[in-house]
Structures are given as structure tokens and as C-alpha cells.
Nucleic acid binder design. Sequence first.
DNA 1: CTCTATACTGCACACGTGTGCATGGGTCAT
DNA 2: ATGACCCATGCACACGTGTGCAGTATAGAG
Lengths: 344, 344
Amino acid sequence: MNRRSVSIQDIAEAAGVSHSTVSRALHDSDLIRPEVRQRIQQIAHEMGYTPNAVAQSLKGQRTNTIGLVITSIADPFAGRVVRGIEEIAQANRISLLLSVSYNDPELEMEIIETFHRRRVDGVISATAQIRGPYVERLAQIKMPTVLINQQAESEADRLHSVDADDYAGARQAVEHLLELGHRKIGYLGVGNRVQSNRRRFAGYCDTLSSAGIAVDAQWVRIAPTVNNPRADDVLDGQAMLPELLPTGVTAVFCYNDQIAVGVLMACRELGLRVPEHLSVVGYDDVDLASYVTPPLTTIHQPKLRLGAIAMQMLLDILEGKAVQSRILPNELVVRASTAPPAGQ
Amino acid sequence: MNRRSVSIQDIAEAAGVSHSTVSRALHDSDLIRPEVRQRIQQIAHEMGYTPNAVAQSLKGQRTNTIGLVITSIADPFAGRVVRGIEEIAQANRISLLLSVSYNDPELEMEIIETFHRRRVDGVISATAQIRGPYVERLAQIKMPTVLINQQAESEADRLHSVDADDYAGARQAVEHLLELGHRKIGYLGVGNRVQSNRRRFAGYCDTLSSAGIAVDAQWVRIAPTVNNPRADDVLDGQAMLPELLPTGVTAVFCYNDQIAVGVLMACRELGLRVPEHLSVVGYDDVDLASYVTPPLTTIHQPKLRLGAIAMQMLLDILEGKAVQSRILPNELVVRASTAPPAGQ
DNA sequence: CTCTATACTGCACACGTGTGCATGGGTCAT
DNA sequence: ATGACCCATGCACACGTGTGCAGTATAGAG
């Protein structure tokens, strides 16, 4: 069983030269006589030689690999972000090491350690939140890191980030509902993505306050935190809506599109019509949002750009360029799930 | 700038022993005196040592990394499969190198070469089709490979696969429609996933034939093949349906759920009611299928299991066990998009 | 013909880890 | 006291690649 693949040493023997010569020849070095160079390349090709990236990584400093942590592959938001990352990575011949954390802090630490062991050049993290020991460890091992949608308060200099503006997005959503004439507006959030939920909720509260509306605690529901990876936002949304109805809200702003879809399904069960009886606004603008009935009014996040910019930022860091964290704007997309309240 | 991280050599100097002793101590070798062993482990911990997996990979034969090729991250089917793979991989401390091929044969070859350069232990391919040079190269470099949903006709011994039974699934879908009383049943397929489309189409044709129904070529539409990565099945479905209507079909069997969703949207535009005016059956049973209105009757594919089994199969191959390709059953899920035809 | 400059190639080491073999020192029995 | 034996450790090489430096051969110049 000839399991071992051909090395430059093998080529060297076949060509009657030293492995150094082969190495240089394959790199088109001027040091090697053109005819020899060509002959060696010919032999290498015939022997089906493929350079061993592991050895190259050991020798050089770069592995041309970056680690990617996301919370779930099933999450369509993450999917689009990863795609943005992947496109830039591929163009720069960088390989992607993918890991999924399911929002588990322990698992997250373990993933970082694995990335470190593998000596990735950098890490992009699109997880829900950065925690103390996590940040500390990242700083200790000096691993270049870019965070997506975490709006870390620049705790450490090493941490760069690219975010979409949750707060402003939430404000747009609620302002849209206010403009339609709604006064009693509910909020359905999630408990396991603390930071982003807090920002969107803050945008919701502040916008209502600005309009002179006191937020009623009964209008707000946050899905309980569960570590169950099978946790499903749609089901949560579906379960939470009925609790909200007795309060008389005429519109609901949801943490994301999945929650909003859950609301749609609950409405269908209850015989409520959207948007006639209830207006619904989602967040993210995933594909799903435009496929459901009625198509969701939502806040569009530039998912591909978030990923692409994060990847480019990481590349810049690796080249020693100075980079600056960025915040991208979100954008309201009005579809058919919102309308003036029934009374008007 | 102390960019280099600590090595066992550094620990050896700090402990006043040789690097061999450190290596053995960290592996809890009996050869090292317990007190020395413990002291070395202590020092290693204090210095923040993390073993260099690159060097370990170079020395040993395994990299504990596998390459994963999929056609698109946005594809919800692929997402679930990847998740099944990831769970098993994580449990076995295997890292995943993710690449996306966008159905581009050239890109696919390039990805395989990259995986080979990186000396991954094996490859799982969930791309649309295996082509000649691709197979040839895989055989040449003897890289253990498991294919998902490609039903390769065991062209090479090295190629193993795990599939869901497309043909039987398609038969179930069409039989369901026949039982409801439909006689004129359309098929909407895709052009860029040749193999699976062919199998599902064959199931469609044979089932109709068995029922004594001659398939009318007008009932069938295949979305044109485009290399545009932005190609979107939903849009294709939406575009194809109107061409089908003049033929008087009362039901449509779609290649996958996205096509079916496109059909739903087209019906909405045209004022057709589903299932009263038209019955629609999808394929895959992605999350989306149960969220649209009406929820789709579809063929459920065991996506997580496909991924998990593929990964386990690859692990078995790596351990030298004999493995056998498998075909899993699909299963009809009846929801609300199918009903007896209008006439009845 | 001899000296020098130049073009080309090999030697040897490095990257970080793992391991067979030899070696050193100690213990024990004769 | 001496030999046999065992335990703990170090030496040296290996994995595959890249590169500074030294060395050789050839050509060109005087």
C-alpha cells in the first residue's frame, strides 16, 4: 500500500538532483537553469506531485486558513454571512475551517483552542456574544479576530468588528409602525442572543418613548433561554404570540424573521388575519421572509457584505494594515405584513 | 513582537530536560517519572502551551481534517446535511474544511486539489454530479471519499456513497397525487443537477406509465442550466408554472421545495388557489416547506442522517473497516398543498 | 595559461513534534 | 565487589519544505 504521496525528495531522486533544486525549480526561481527547471517541472507533473501544505505551513508562518465560528448552520442569516466570507476567502486562496457553537460557551472556548492548535491565521466569529474568558484567551494567544454583529465595546485593541446597526434598524421598524398609526406595539425577543436582543429592544423602547408612548411591560415577551440546539425561533414565536394578544396590541415587532413567521403561523391557527388584524415586522430579511404569506415587512441586513467585509478586514490585519471597525446601516423593506390598525 | 508561540523546546529549556522528555510527559507516558511528568505539565500550563497540530500532522499521517464540498451554503438542504456531518465530526475531534463549488466543474477540481495539498484525511462531496476527470483524479490520489446523494454507479471501488432513494421518493409523490384522483400531473425540474433530476423524473414517468397514463411532453418543464451562482430555484419555479397551465394539469410535482414555493407564488399572482385549483408537491422537506401557505406536501429526506452517516462512513474507512454504500428511504409528508382535483 | 567573476547546485539547518535506540545510573542478588 | 537488570532520560533521526551559505564549474578577460 503506497499510502505516502510523492515528495520533492522523490522528484529529486528521479531527476538526479537535490531536493533544494527541486524546491527552487518548482517556485520558478531564477537560480535554476531554465532547462533543468523545465525538466523538473515536467517530472513533477508526471509523478503527480502535489505540494504538502502542512509542511509548508510548518516552515512558513502562514497556514492560509482561517477559523469560522457560527452558532448554527441551519440559521439562514448565518448562511448568507458565511457565503460572503467564503467568496472573499476563495478569491484569496484562503481555506475555511468551520465550527458550530450552538451558543454553548464551553464549546466556544474549545473551538478557539482547536483553531489555535491548528495555527489558523485568524478567526471570524459570528456567535451571539463574546464572554470574559473568551476575550481574555484570544488576547493571550494574540490571534487576529474579527467579530460580526457583536458591537463589542472595544474592550481590547486586538478585537475588530463589523456590525449592522441593530439599534437604528429597530427604530426604523417601530417608526414604520407608528407612521401607520399603531400605538400599542408589542416586542417578541429572544433570550439566548443577549447583546443584539438588547440593542433591538432598546431601539424599540426609545422610539416609543420619543413618540410619547409609555412601554407596557405586558407588550414584551422574551423567549426563554434554552441550551437545546434544537431550539427553534419559529416555534418560540408561535408560542409567544397568544400571550401577547390579551394586551390589545395591534402590531408586533419581532427580533427576527423566524419569530415573525412563527407569529404568522399562530395567527393562522387563531383565525387572525395579517395585516388586517395584526401588523408584523421581522428582522434580517432572510429569503424566507419574502416567501411566506403575507410576505414580511422586515429590516434588511446586508448579510453578504457583513461577511465579505469581515473577511477583507481580517486579510488586511494579516498584512499589517491598520483597519477600523465598521457599522453598516440596515434598511426597512416594506412588504405586505403591515398596514394601518383595524380601527382606522 | 513575540509572534512565535511556545514549543516543547521552550518548555524543555525551562524545565532543564530534553524536548523528548517533554513530549512524552505531555502524553502521559509511563516512561517518565511521575513527579517529573507532573512538573513538566505544570510548566507547560503556565507557559500557555498549545500543541502545534501542523507539526503533529506532518509527523503523523493524520491531519484529523476532512474536506467538505457543497454546491451552495444558501441551500437549506445542504445546510441540514452539513449539520449532520458536523455533529459527528465534532464528536470525533475532526475539523471541517468547507468549500463551495457553485456547480462549477473547474472550481470543483480546484477544491479537490486544495484538499489534497492540505492533506485532508478524506472528502465528503455533496455536489450535484461527479464527472469523469474528477473521479479519475480522486482515484489517483487515493483520497477516501464519500458522496452524498449522487448514486454513483460504483464506477470505482474507492468511491462510497450514501443516498436517499430519489426514484422511490418520486414514485410516492406521484402515487399520492394519483390516489387523490389526478390524471394530468406536471413535472417541474432543474437542469443543473442532472443525476438527481433524472432519477426523480424517471420515478415520475414510470409511476404515470404504471397507471396507464401516457406522459405528455407538455407537462414537463426543466429550468435552464445557468452557471450563475445567483440562480434561484424559487424564481425558476415561479417562471415555469405559467408555461404549464395551458396544458390543463391539475397537479404539479416539483424537483424540490424551492421550486414548489415558486409555484405557490406564481399561483398567488395568477389568482389560482392551492390546492383547490392546483395541487403541489415538493421534495426535500426543508423548514421552509412547513412555513409557507399552504404548508407543502412534500417528500421528506433524512438530511441530518445523510450527513451523519456519510461522516461515520468516512471515519470507518479511515480506520480500515469495510463499509458499504447505503440508500436511505424517503417518506411522503402530506400537508395542505394537495387535494382532489377540482372536477371531483 | 591563469585569474576572476558569474551562474548554478548542494549542504545543512530550520520549522515543531514523535519515537527507536542507546546510555546512564541505580538496585539487587550472588 | 561485581555482574545483571531495569528504569528514566537523552540522542538522533524522521516527516516535507524552504533558504542562507558555501562550493563547483564554466566562461570570459587579461
